[in-house]
Amino acid sequence: MKILDKWLMEHKYKIQDVKLMMNMIRESFLAKLGLTIITMFILTAIFAPFIATQDPLMQDLTNRFQPPSLEHPFGTDHLGRDIFSRVVYGSRISLMMGITVTLILFTIGTTLGLIAGFFGGAVDEIIMRITDIIMAFPSLILAIAVAAALGPSLLNTMIAIAIVGWPRYARLARANCMQVKNELYIEAARAIGVSNLRLIFSHIFPMIISPLIVQATINLGGVILLAAGLGFLGLGAQPPTPEWGLMVSEGRRFISRQWWISGFPGLAILLVALGFNLLGDALRDILDVRMRR
């Protein structure tokens, strides 16, 4: 009897443990949702030719304004192009833009941040004041101004976003660099005569890369959204490129009846941005917890 009691007691706690642990796993549900969306987005971009049912540029004027159907899951636009195929191919442009811009941001921001943090003094002062100015300025307006001045094109959109976005990375890199540079092994490397450039890029940079990568993930959703906004304003990709923002803008003229022309490309933008933001949010939470402990 006593043994049975003891068994029940122990296992009662165990059963409750499992239940509570399950609750904790469910806590990261949002992160898993984000990760799933991102994976699907990347797979779509890679396998676009196999997923798309038609050539995204193929016009068929006899088949204009078809509502969503089995043949055209997302309907057709004013030129009879299959919107599903265009959205699928658009994922490539979005992904390419997101990655390219992030790489540019990362490179410029990190380099300037490392230089500022490592050398300090006047160089640091100048770089940081420039970041102050750019960050004090509304990013969408600045991006529009730059993109407009450079002339509308995909490349110029990316440059514009990079110009408004790098200060964040620079600040993060600088702060981390200043922490790391006084560590003993850096001092030691300096003492044996390692050059500054090598010190920065092969000793300090590897130490500070992980928060920057987290920052990049958190930022990707915003980059894609900003790029789509510029595309919508006609500052990015030009027709007939199947860029999502541009597609929403093309469908605008027909919004009173053919909602799907703008509807599906916009939904794609929302989903992808949501995916990155969900994951970024979870990453930030986890980092936060790590810092608290």
């Binding site: 949002l30 949702l33 959703g221 915003g222 959204l225 789509a228 906004g229 919508f232 923002g245 929403v248 803008s249 469908g251 605008r252 919004i255 009173s256 009846r257 909602w259 703008s262 509807g263 490309p265 916009g266 939904l267 933008i269 929302l270 941005a273 949501l274 990155f276 933001n277 969900l278 949010d281």
Partner: peptide, 26 residues
């Protein structure tokens, strides 16, 4: 609510505007 608020950050406003126009006006 968290999904809703993260959607807020992820929302292409130009698209939301068009969709609402379609539904509530047209």
């Amino acid at each position: 609510i968290r999904i809703f608020s993260i959607s807020g950050l992820s929302m292409p406003v130009f698209w939301l505007g068009l969709m609402l126009l379609y539904v509530f006006y047209f």
